[in-house]
């Protein structure tokens, strides 16, 4: 039934899409069902052939695979590779899929045995250090966010269906935040990763007077030293910056560098603000 839809009398091609999830909270899939006002339009745009969370009948014949979650077990590696082989376009859906998400926070412990014992004691349960999809297969399109924004997904799906390329904003969240005329959180005494995080969420958190935690990963020209300078100027510790940079896995390199600095200064030492502010 995939191809009989028309728009202004012209047949519109509805791509066959499937949704898959790996290690995650499954919230990004839920976001797809979560925009009630446009859900039916969305269902007109695509033909969903597999969506385990919502339907019983599944099919292996799909063109676009939306993959949510990170990879943390051998069987997931195999399943992901199978999906990659079948799909023409593989979309990483959400920060877990793009960067490992909050799940990758367990990777920061050198002793993974300790991580295991904290939760399961001596009981054996299979689990690998967390990897993003791109660590294992080629990812064609990334949709950032924890959670993803449904509006953005709809735009991206339309573009994929029309064969247009997907362009993410290169600039940071601060640009959107200033356009939205928010009070800057630093002026309210709150930390914010807006200066280094890729825009596209319309400054979702600062609009709600909550600081950005960097769920969309680094903007193209993100400068962690400048962020550090702003944070330190406003009295925040390196640890607060690292906590936030660490959160979703998009800033692994940046936070590793700051962690080295933290170890060099020790817990009490003062911090060189660096940068230009």
């Amino acid at each position: 039934m995939g191809k009989e839809k028309t728009y202004l009398g012209v047949p519109v091609y509805r791509p066959r899409v499937a949704f898959f999830e790996f290690t995650s909270c499954e919230g990004c899939q839920l976001q797809i069902l979560n925009r009630e006002e446009s859900l039916l339009d969305f269902l007109n745009l695509v033909e969903i052939v597999d969506f385990r969370e919502a339907m019983t009948e599944g099919s292996d014949d799909y063109e676009i695979a939306f993959v949510e979650g990170c990879i943390s077990r051998d069987d997931e590696v195999v399943r992901l590779q199978e999906i990659r082989q079948r799909a023409k376009v593989l979309v990483a859906l959400g920060s877990c899929a793009c960067f490992g998400g909050v799940n990758q926070l367990k990777n920061r412990f050198l002793d993974q045995g300790w991580v295991h014992r904290q939760v399961y004691g001596e009981y054996p349960i299979a689990s690998l250090p967390v990897r993003s999809l791109a660590d294992i297969v080629t990812v064609d399109v990334s949709i950032f966010g924890c959670p993803i924004k449904k509006e953005e997904v709809e735009k991206i799906v339309t573009n994929i269906a029309l064969g247009k390329s997907i362009v993410h904003p290169k600039y940071p969240v601060c640009m959107e935040c200033q356009a939205n005329e928010n009070i800057c959180l630093f002026d309210l005494g709150e930390p914010c990763l807006g200066p280094v995080t890729r825009a596209g969420c319309d400054s979702w958190c600062p609009n709600n007077r909550a600081g950005c935690w960097g769920c969309r990963g680094p903007a193209d020209d993100a400068d962690p030293q400048r962020l550090k300078a702003i944070m330190v100027k406003h009295g925040f510790s390196l640890e607060t910056i690292i906590d936030r940079l660490d959160c979703f896995g998009g800033f692994v390199r940046e936070s590793a560098r700051l962690r080295d600095e933290l170890e060099n200064v020790g817990q009490t030492g003062s911090v060189d603000p660096g940068g230009g502010i």
């Binding site: 790996f22 290690t23 995650s24 909270c25 499954e26 919230g27 990004c28 899939q29 839920l30 943390s72 077990r73 997931e76 998400g101 909050v102 799940n103 926070l105 367990k106 412990f109 300790w114 991580v115 295991h116 904290q118 939760v119 399961y120 349960i125 689990s127 924890c146 959670p147 935690w213 640890e239 607060t240 906590d243 959160c247």
Partner: peptide
């Protein structure tokens, strides 16, 4: 697959707990 939230939280300051733990579940965040 397990995600080890109880281990992830160890060493984090208190303000991380609601932010991280909400991500245990997309339906009941």
């Amino acid at each position: 697959t397990p995600r080890f939230f109880e281990a992830i939280l160890v060493g984090k300051m208190w303000e991380n707990a609601p932010y991280l733990c909400g991500r245990i579940c997309g339906i009941c965040s």
